[in-house]
């Protein structure tokens, strides 16, 4: 039996990698994948605690997160395709039209 704290530590590490990826990478696809990684790290923490407390609540929540993440991916990729068509780039530093 793997101790729960290992799962939590792994989840935290994955989340931190995701955050760093979002904040530092310039390729929109990588940023996107980093976001997915953060979501999955949260899923990992949820199923770990569900196993720890022998409760189905956490697992059910994971299904919801996966569903929402799938929808988000669909919308996000569509946006990316549109941006690429308009700008011919996926570098998010080039996409700064909101600059004040």
């Amino acid at each position: 039996m793997v101790p729960t704290s290992y799962y939590v530590l792994l989840s935290a590490a994955l989340f931190a990698i995701g955050v760093v990826g979002v904040l530092t990478r310039r390729n929109a696809l990588i940023v996107f994948m980093s976001v997915e990684m953060m979501l999955n790290s949260a899923n990992l923490a949820l199923v770990a605690f569900a196993q720890r407390w022998q409760s189905a609540n956490g697992q059910i929540l994971v299904f919801f997160v996966i569903t929402v993440a799938a929808a988000e991916v669909a919308v996000g990729l569509a946006l990316l395709v549109t941006i690429f068509r308009a700008k011919r780039t996926t570098d998010i530093d080039e996409i700064n039209t909101l600059r004040g």
Binding site: V22, T24, V31, I92, D93, N96, R99, G100
Partner: peptide, 10 residues
């Protein structure tokens, strides 16, 4: 305040 609005998502 406009200096805060860089336009960079980061």
């Amino acid at each position: 305040f406009r200096r805060g609005q860089t336009g960079y998502i980061r």
